Amino acid sequence: MASLDIVQAYYTSFNQKNWEGMLALLHPEVRHEPNQGDVRIGIEKFIEFLGKMDESYEETLTDMVFFTTPDDSRIAVEFVVRGIYKKGEEGLPEAYGQSYKLPAAAFLELKNEKICRVTTYYNLPLWIDLVSKPKND
């Protein structure tokens, strides 16, 4: 399967909340480089991350544009995150169901038809501003 097809299937699974489908596309020693925080290595660490994300955020990615390298080993994707902030996290604003729309990007590397690196970028101060707006009662 082509790298682009694998990455598109990965994000389709994300939008469908098909975590098993996502995990099946990852290399066992996947390197996850989040926008903030420590690098996570391995499927188990990625599963922990997915659990925390699923608990705190309801997200769908839209307006996806994919870019591939000539050797088909790396894919970049630009997208818009449309989300709901469900449960607050330490060091972040209180959550009460705020919605947000945030531009983001990710860079993925593949090896032997498995995603071996996922690096994600977004503007955290913008996200904090979006979810810190006063609650509309």
Rank of each mutant, 00 (worst) to 15 (best):
N123M: 05
H32A: 13
V77N: 07
W19K: 06
K111F: 05
N136D: 14
V7W: 06
K86M: 12
K135E: 06
L23Y: 08
R82T: 09
G97H: 08
W19I: 14
W127G: 05
W127L: 15
F49K: 11
L26E: 11
E48Y: 00
K114I: 00
K101C: 09
E58D: 15
P28F: 03
Q36R: 14
L4V: 06
G97D: 10
F66C: 03
M53S: 14
Q16M: 03
P70V: 04
T68H: 04
L23R: 09
P93V: 06
Q98I: 04
K45S: 12
A106S: 15
E33F: 00
G42Y: 01
R40M: 12
V39W: 02
D71C: 07
Y10L: 15
Y100T: 04
P125C: 04
I41C: 04
M22Q: 15
D38W: 01
D54E: 15
E89N: 10
K52H: 09
Q16L: 11
I47G: 02
D137Q: 04
S99M: 03
I75R: 04
K17L: 11
L26T: 14
R40F: 01
V81K: 03
E44R: 10
V39E: 08
L26F: 08
D38H: 11
K111T: 09
Y96G: 03
P125S: 04
V118L: 13
K114W: 02
Y11T: 02
L108F: 05
Y57C: 10
K133V: 12
D72T: 01
N35T: 15
Y10E: 13
R117A: 14
I6D: 01
E48Q: 12
I75Y: 02
I75S: 04
V77G: 06
E94I: 09
K45N: 13
D5S: 10
A2E: 10
F79T: 00
A105L: 11
T12V: 02
M53Y: 07
G88F: 01
F66S: 03
V39F: 04
Q36H: 11
G51N: 13
L126M: 12
L26H: 07
S56T: 15
A2H: 09
K111Y: 09
M22A: 07
A76S: 12
L92N: 13
N35W: 01
L92P: 00
G51T: 08
L130Q: 15
F66N: 02
N18H: 14
T120W: 00
L108H: 11
K45Q: 14
G91M: 06
T120S: 12
F107N: 10
K86N: 13
